[in-house]
Computed example of a mutant assay.
Amino acid sequence: MPVPLPPLPPAPGDDEEYRPGGRSVVDLLAEEHARIGGLLRELADPRLPAQRRSQVAQVLTATVSRHLSAEEQYLYPAMRASLPDGGPLADREIAADTEVLRMLRDLAGTAPEDPRFGGLADDLGGKLRRHADAADREIFPVLREVATDAELIRLGNRVEIAEEAAPTRPHPGHPVSPPWNRVVEPALGVVDKVRDAVTGRRTYVEDLGNRPQPR
């Protein structure tokens, strides 16, 4: 069953074996889930100094915000069109994503020294682990069955492009379905990136550098 995709440049000729450059959306998102898991494990380390904890929380917030934005723009519409029960599954995940964004907003507004910080981080970690587990069990295997390799790669390319323009901060009250999220999310992303540049906020795992040894 072909997976409906947003408009893309046509593939060369009519060769069904044509394989575009890039990464499968499944591989891309699975790797991001693993990266998010690594950030959660570091955030949960009780030996982590407060400054480092704040930096890890910043990167986690930005990473998850970009990730969820791209999934809502491209993965969930593909699920609705192509997977058995894809509509209800997408609705469930969007509702869960909205809750994750609210939790990210609460975490971002809480100082690492605040006694509430640890509980917020633990609750968020549980939600994000559920998110990754649902993708591994319910979404990725079926998507591999119904989509060609070329379709998965082209969808992965769209997700990567969307993430580059996506917000780096949680905006749980904004549109979560096409076409409006594909208009609103890049605009919010521009505003967020300006704020990040002005404040020196970290938004990528690479920005963290090597972890200092706790004393």
Rank of each mutant, 00 (worst) to 15 (best):
A90H: 02
R105M: 08
R202E: 12
D97Q: 12
V198G: 08
E138A: 14
P10T: 14
A30P: 12
R215G: 12
R52G: 00
R195M: 02
I161M: 15
R130V: 07
G209Y: 03
P175M: 11
L68R: 08
P212I: 03
A81W: 02
H131A: 02
R154N: 12
P178T: 13
D123H: 03
D91N: 13
P214H: 15
V59I: 08
Y76S: 03
D45T: 09
I153M: 13
R169C: 06
Q55W: 04
R202K: 15
R53S: 08
L89D: 10
F117K: 01
L48A: 00
I94N: 01
L43R: 05
A147C: 12
Q58H: 10
D149I: 03
V159E: 14
Q73V: 10
V25N: 11
E31M: 14
S65A: 15
R66T: 04
A166E: 14
V176G: 05
E185V: 01
R41E: 14
R53N: 00
E42Q: 13
V191Q: 13
A78F: 10
L152F: 09
V191T: 14
P212Y: 06
S82V: 02
A165E: 04
P115T: 12
R116K: 09
A70G: 11
P212T: 04
E32Y: 00
I94S: 02
P6I: 05
D196I: 00
R52T: 08
P10K: 10
P9C: 08
P170W: 04
L104E: 03
V25C: 15
S177P: 01
P2H: 08
Q55F: 00
Y204L: 15
P214A: 14
G38W: 07
V159N: 13
D133T: 03
L101R: 09
R52D: 07
P112F: 00
S65D: 07
E93G: 06
R169E: 12
L152C: 10
P115K: 12
R41D: 15
P115Q: 04
L143H: 03
T98F: 00
D114R: 07
A187R: 11
R52F: 01
N210L: 11
D192L: 05
G38C: 10
